[in-house]
Design a protein around this nucleic acid. Structure first.
Length: 1053
RNA sequence: GGGCGAUUAGCUCAGUCGGUUAGAGCGCCUCUCUGAUAAGGAGGAGGUCCCUGGUUCGAAUCCAGGAUCGCCCA
């Protein structure tokens, strides 16, 4: 048997991980796993596509670690998995980055650059970053079938969406409508609700108070307040609350009407109120608009209208209404049948009808508009306001509202079915299900069009008559095409725009120019990647169109879809509730009437370690590449696993270091085993992992029970997709192994003679560490396999070559009695230590005895089994159980509330008091109190130490130590001190642990006595072959309690 | 305005089914071990479990109201 590799004192995570990556590569470990699991019960995970647009961040690494963790766990349990990664390829995300890199800054510049070149540049960017992200993910340890990733820009993906849209059209859910949209003037496109995520920023904007004089009484006017001066030229109405009281305030300009509750704020305390009126009395009044001289205003008759949404705590209580520039305004305008003026074009510039304003940008218009209003005498005052205002998530431009024509999918028909489908899903954390339901109840129609370039070409063809034809597949396009289609290289602009079609009524129709919302691209994935509805399975058939050369993903058939749909599990960050979780659910409910996933794990946001959001500009962002090469992937992954998903994560080098230090405990245990395994040439037994190792001590039995218990806890946690419980359970096992098992068993490994006991110790420790390797393998795949290679592979017959091929550990039923015993013994030991500390006796000093007292017979029996271990830990010669508990303790009986609550109910406080007062008697049956007989299960014994003993107690257990020393104990204590000192000398001299030494020693009289009695022990403990006593030695001196020596150590020859 | 969360030690966070002495890590203090050692172990200080009320024999936990913070929608 080959010898074990030496283990460094601390793991070099980075080097270790690169080594393991190379090993996996060389041995095709992942392929072996897939072969091994082929035909296993399917476990369907569907990956949410990552936008292939930038290098991945540490927040992506969080999600990817969780995905990989869960997949590895299921794989170890023998499931067959698909391992398909996904890249999101289209949409504004990509366009904006490409614009930046090409130095383009407007839609006009893109069109001048050429849509074909632009599309190629977008595709190339996706290719570049998908490769980078794949490489980064591999470094993280994520096992995916990287050659077969799906790309949402491929023709099959697009065609599947076409089909979906056609189904929507057939069900009359698809429509085109004028809608006020949130609009980015720079990007020249509207933003969906989805894209307003995190879009509010603190901004300072101008505010204006403006008079709208009445036509029939020009000295009177309503006064409005606005924070968007550029919308005033599109004003068509002023809204008042019909039920509120308004005041006409006398000012230098005449009578200004505002809501009465606003008078004081606006005009001060001494405002001169000429008269008051209900809002309803103002309704219908015609007024002179502020920009009536502009051509756009020619047809507009301004009037006061009633509106129930007028606020009374802001502004003037009279609201300026511009239906072309605001969502609420638009709704009100529709109701009141007043005109909708859209003052600006796609780029946010005033159109020609706006005279001197035309060509001006909205942001630049505030000042001239204010000046103009001042000149015409309607400006009451101007100021500024600091408020939260939505800006474009990509370019930071202030967003505006603009009424535009867009394409929508009506939501009402699917709202309830979606709510029902969502209710079948296991949402983790649970409240995310409520959030989804809330979102669904409130969802508006889905705006699916974008006036951009690089995206899903909407397959809507408009004929001159206005008739709309929706194309549902590439074949249909081919059949209807009136332009040459054979050269169509991919389903993207500009190429697709060249193809016109013939409609059913024989007209020639052109495609609308819009592209689709990128959430259509991602939402179709559970259909497009699984071959829904296809007759044939096409190997590597997915990569048509823009995906050629990027992936070898198959285009499967319907049988395959049946096997893998719906997903057992998906996982993304929480905001995906309104994004991918939503769009997938929408499309799935439309197409097949059910949810596309069974379980969903969501998680919150990743912040820096101080709890602040990470921002490039704040300098607190951590790059993935830096993190992984400094912390190590395992450490990162363990951090992610420990994190409560429903809580924001504080990520950084500080927390990483804490985790790294905790992982040292496992590493130290491993290194301890290797050290002695090497010395003893230990050969493990593979079968031990299933059948358990032999046990000779109570500690052996106990730690094996702890392993069993932990395996079960891990499975429960991972079945519930709750990784922190899993990670904590493993950490707790590692702690127990190190602090109790190894510390309590060390002597068994030091002994030079071999026997069954030593064999059991080795096999048990090996068993524990090997099982821990398997338990941590899903979360820390590198360290788990590194240890496995050295400790298991090629050491035991039949051992798999990788921990990842070793399957999940088998849980036997935990030995509950052993767990209980050890729990009590641990309590007894820590009490004994506390008692020693009270009695001022170092642990090194042997003491005569510890006395344990407990009134609970079962507890006593349980602890008694571990007397030897307790004696060892407490360094006492004897452990005795007090015959009469009151020797040490006063006893208090406490009701077992959990058991007695249902039985005694309101009598509990009375019984509790009687017990406390000692008003009870004990009998065979149990405790007689207040007319009840309480069995031992129904009460709990607690103890308090009697005065005058070095006693510590907790619950029903008390431990005392005898602190008296006689000469023998004193000398033994000194011998221990001496050993301790010599060990230090050994170490100072740089000797190896197994080196034999010689000692020359010059003792005083007391030391001579100690040597006489304990010389052999000292020699044996220090691996000394010859201990020579001399009158003078050149060496180091040691002195303790009158015992003094000079010692010289040397290597034995 | 509606919805979903959070609030526990100096800091970051666990806390299952309601059970009477609320835990961990880090930090701090005092020790200890020295054959796992840039570690390990023990002990200690540190808590109005956000507030008020309710249900209950019993509430960090359940209910109602409120406060503060975060997020989603309007």
């Amino acid at each position: 048997m080959s010898s074990y590799d030496a283990v460094p004192a601390t793991p070099d995570h980075i080097a270790l991980e690169h080594r393991v990556l190379a090993l996996w590569e060389a041995e095709s470990t992942f392929d072996q796993l897939r072969t091994q699991n082929a035909g296993g019960a399917p476990y369907s995970f569907i990956d949410g596509p990552i936008t292939a647009n930038n290098p991945m961040g540490v927040h992506h690494a969080w999600g990817r670690s969780l995905k990989d963790l869960m997949q590895r766990h299921r794989a170890m349990r023998g499931h067959e998995l698909r391992y398909q990664n996904g890249f999101d390829c289209q949409g504004l995300w990509v366009e904006v980055e490409v614009e930046k890199s090409l130095g383009l800054n407007s839609k006009q510049e893109i069109e001048e650059y050429g849509l074909d070149r632009f599309a190629r540049a977008c595709r190339d960017r996706v290719a570049e970053y998908s490769a980078i992200q794949a490489r980064q993910s591999q470094r993280l340890g994520q096992w995916m079938d990287w050659d077969r990733s799906y790309y949402t820009m491929t023709d099959p993906n697009i065609a599947y969406i076409w089909h979906f849209l056609k189904v929507c059209h057939e069900r009359e859910m698809l429509y085109r409508g004028n809608r006020p949209m949130v609009w980015c003037p720079r990007c020249g496109t509207s933003l969906s609700q989805h894209e307003l995520i995190d879009s509010y920023q603190d901004r300072t904007h101008p505010t204006l108070h403006v008079r709208f004089p009445f036509v029939d009484a020009p000295e009177e006017a309503v006064v409005v307040w606005t924070t968007t001066p550029w919308t005033l030229p599109a004003n068509v109405a002023a809204a008042v609350d019909p039920t509120a009281e308004y005041s006409g305030v006398r000012t230098s300009q005449g009578i200004d009407w505002v809501m009465s509750t606003r008078v004081e704020d606006l005009f001060g305390e001494g405002a001169d109120v000429a008269r008051t009126a209900l809002g309803s009395e103002l309704v219908g009044k015609a007024y002179v608009g502020p920009f009536d001289d502009l051509a756009a205003q020619d047809e507009v008759a301004h009037r006061v209208v009633a509106w129930d949404m007028v606020s009374d705590n802001e502004g003037t209580g009279v609201v300026h209404i511009a239906p072309g520039c605001g969502a609420e305004d638009f709704e009100l305008g529709k109701r009141e049948q007043i005109p909708t003026l859209v003052p600006v074009d796609e780029a946010g510039h005033f159109t020609e009808e706006y005279g001197w304003l035309s060509g001006m940008a909205t942001a630049d218009a505030a000042e001239p508009i204010t000046a103009h209003l001042a000149k015409t005498g309607v400006l009451v005052r101007s100021g500024t306001i600091d408020h939260r205002f939505p800006v474009c998530w990509r370019c930071g431009t202030d967003l505006i509202f603009r009424v535009v024509e867009e394409w929508f999918i009506a939501a009402d028909k699917v709202r309830q079915p979606m709510i029902d489908a969502a209710a079948t899903v296991n949402w983790v954390p649970e409240q995310y299900g409520k959030r989804m339901e809330d979102w669904l109840r409130n969802m508006g129609d889905w705006c699916i069009s974008r006036k951009r370039y690089w995206g899903l070409p909407l397959p809507f063809y408009r004929a001159p008559s206005g008739e709309i034809t929706v194309i549902g597949s590439v074949e249909e396009l081919r059949e209807r095409a009136v332009d040459p289609i054979d050269d169509l290289q991919e389903l993207h602009r500009p190429w697709i725009d060249d193809i016109r079609i013939r409609t059913d009524s024989g007209e020639i129709a052109e495609r609308v120019t819009e592209v689709g919302d990128c959430w259509l691209d991602a939402g179709i994935v559970p259909f497009s990647t699984l071959g829904w509805g296809r007759d044939t399975y096409t190997p590597e058939g997915y990569a048509e169109g823009a995906g050629v050369g990027l992936t070898r993903a198959d285009l499967p058939d319907h049988a395959y879809w049946e096997k893998w749909f719906p997903a057992d599990w998906i996982s993304e960050m929480r905001e995906q509730i309104r994004l991918w979780f939503y769009s997938q659910l929408f499309m799935s409910v439309v197409l097949v009437g059910k949810a596309p996933y069974k379980s969903v794990l969501g998680y919150e946001k990743l912040h820096d370690e101080t709890g602040r959001a990470m921002h490039k500009s704040w300098g607190n962002a951590i790059w993935f590449d830096d993190a992984v090469e400094e912390m190590g992937a395992d450490v990162m992954r363990w951090l992610y696993a420990l994190q409560t998903p429903s809580q924001n994560m504080n990520f950084g080098y500080g927390p990483a270091n804490e985790v790294r230090r905790r992982l040292l405990t496992l590493w130290n245990s491993y290194s301890f085993l290797i050290r002695y395994a090497e010395i003893d040439d230990f050969t493990p037994t593979w079968a031990d992992l299933d059948s358990r190792p032999p046990a000779t001590t109570a500690l052996d039995t106990w730690i094996v029970a702890r392993v069993d218990e932990t395996i079960i806890a891990c499975d429960e946690a991972l079945d519930a997709y709750w990784t922190p419980t899993y990670a904590r359970a493993v950490e707790s096992l590692i702690d127990d192994l190190s602090a109790w098992y190894i510390r309590g068993s060390r002597a068994r490994f030091w002994r030079s003679e071999s026997d069954a006991d030593k064999d059991a110790a080795f096999r048990t420790l090996w068993y524990c560490i090997a099982q821990i390797c398997r338990l941590i393998a899903p979360a820390m795949p590198f360290m788990a396999d590194e240890i496995w290679q050295n400790l298991v592979r090629d050491r035991a017959d039949d051992a798999p070559t990788s921990v990842h091929l070793s399957s999940w550990p088998k849980a036997n039923t935990p030995d509950q009695a052993a767990l209980l015993s050890m729990g009590l013994a641990q309590t007894a030991i820590s009490l004994g230590r506390a008692a020693r500390a009270q009695g001022n006796r170092k642990l090194r000093q042997p003491l005569r005895e510890a006395v344990i007292a407990t009134p609970d017979a079962a507890a006593r029996a349980a602890v008694e089994r571990l007397s030897a271990e307790i004696a060892l830990e407490l360094n006492v010669k004897n452990v005795r159980f007090a015959d009469a508990v009151d020797e040490l303790l006063e006893i208090e009986i406490i009701p077992n509330f959990r058991a007695l609550g249902p039985k005694l109910g309101k009598d509990i406080p009375r019984v509790q008091q009687l017990l406390k007062d000692g008003e009870y008697s004990r009998s065979e049956a149990g405790v007689e109190v207040g007319g009840y007989t309480l069995t031992d299960d129904e009460v709990e014994f607690r103890t308090r130490p009697r005065e005058g003993f070095a006693v510590a107690d907790e619950g029903g257990l008390a431990v005392a130590v005898d602190t008296e020393l006689d000469q023998e104990l004193e000398e033994e204590g000194l011998a221990r001190e001496l050993i301790h000192f010599i060990q230090g000398e050994r170490k100072a001299a740089g000797f190896e642990i197994a080196d034999r030494i010689t000692i020359e020693i010059a003792p005083n009289a007391l030391a001579e006595r100690v040597l006489a009695r304990f010389g052999d022990e000292i020699a044996s403990e220090t691996l000394c072959t010859t201990l020579t006593s001399l009158s003078h030695v050149d060496g180091n001196a040691f002195e303790s309690d009158g015992c003094s020596v000079v010692v010289h150590v040397a290597l034995a020859t």
